[in-house]
Design a protein around this nucleic acid. Structure first.
Lengths: 111, 111, 111, 111
DNA sequence: TTTT
DNA sequence: TTTT
């Protein structure tokens, strides 16, 4: 419940349509990425554009919202929890990934 | 500058003393990890404790603060930017890591 | 500097065009209000729309941005500091007001 | 539900013990104030300490937490919603007040 | 006073 | 892979 100890807010756009999975249990999962853009001047005074791509996951009701309303290019604001996970590759190697488990989303730019 | 597009807030404790590096340019870097704790009930009703360890980086003046005031066990609140980076292992394999580039820190539990 | 101790984030729309003042010192001030909307179901199950109007103030470079880009109906995300002030009415009575001193703004809904 | 459109985070200390009310309906309400401190240098270069006092309200389970654990001087982090209300004085005059309706609280400095 |  |  405590968003205060671990909270991420992002404003950005989807790189692709969300992928939706429905599990046998009925649980629904939407995964997608969003880009956040920033610009700064380097030590030569040139403007540098920087993009970060973030992995987002949304469950159940939020996955329904993703399935219905979100698509490639959609602008959203999200709040979520930062989660670091490990998994094994098919070759048996351990890999790490970071995802944002979304708690709340606002669709932006609606007319 | 825009924290609004990409902002993380965490409240937690350091796992170890910060590591401090000073570059030839004079730039200073502090790196450390903090743990954020949360508790929830699983579908059997049992309480589950979950810990997430986050990689933090602090530059220059903030690195000085880290060097002077932070040590293993210190409780802090931080605000930062979520940054995903890739690097090559010594075997030439590409790996990914996620760090929080800290903009602001508050030391807690003082006095 | 510390946004961590006192930080407000809002996403909403301007009720009117910003008002801009330039002081003799050259300092520039923009003031305006934004509405944040929320919806909930009351205990009868009816949907209730709730609007909150917030007083925002932006100084100097941010005031320039307000003057150039913001107008009635514009959708924005802002981060700022919550400030409670008192002042005297022309009748000499003390009154209190709450404002958000904006640190950062993102304009939303640009195609 | 959407914290994203209207969200306040504060870190500070209680000015007094919380006041607790229990309504006939069984609903419970805790009210208290917290101070947030900041320091900056004025245009003469002198350090200026600034304190803001914020009105907080917590309902039901959160009110229980306030009643049990919070007292004058307690250091807390809170997340809540910014709410502006009007009421009538006993002389029939309209007054305005701003409160933060707390959604989440973390007690700091424990042990 | 905004907007959906 | 988004967008300006």
């Amino acid at each position: 419940m405590s968003n205060l100890r671990n909270s991420v807010q992002l404003i950005g756009r989807l790189g692709k349509d969300p992928e939706i999975k429905v599990f046998d249990s009925g649980k629904k999962l939407a995964t997608f990425t969003i880009a956040t853009n920033s610009a700064y001047r380097n030590n030569k005074g040139d403007k540098v554009e920087e993009v970060q791509w973030h992995n987002l996951v949304m469950w159940d009701k939020l996955a329904d919202i993703a399935a219905q309303y979100l698509k490639k290019g959609s602008e959203v604001a999200i709040e979520g929890k930062l989660v670091h996970r490990s998994y094994e590759t098919s070759e048996g190697e351990k890999r790490y990934t970071t995802e944002i488990n979304v708690n709340d989303i606002v669709m932006l730019g609606g007319k």
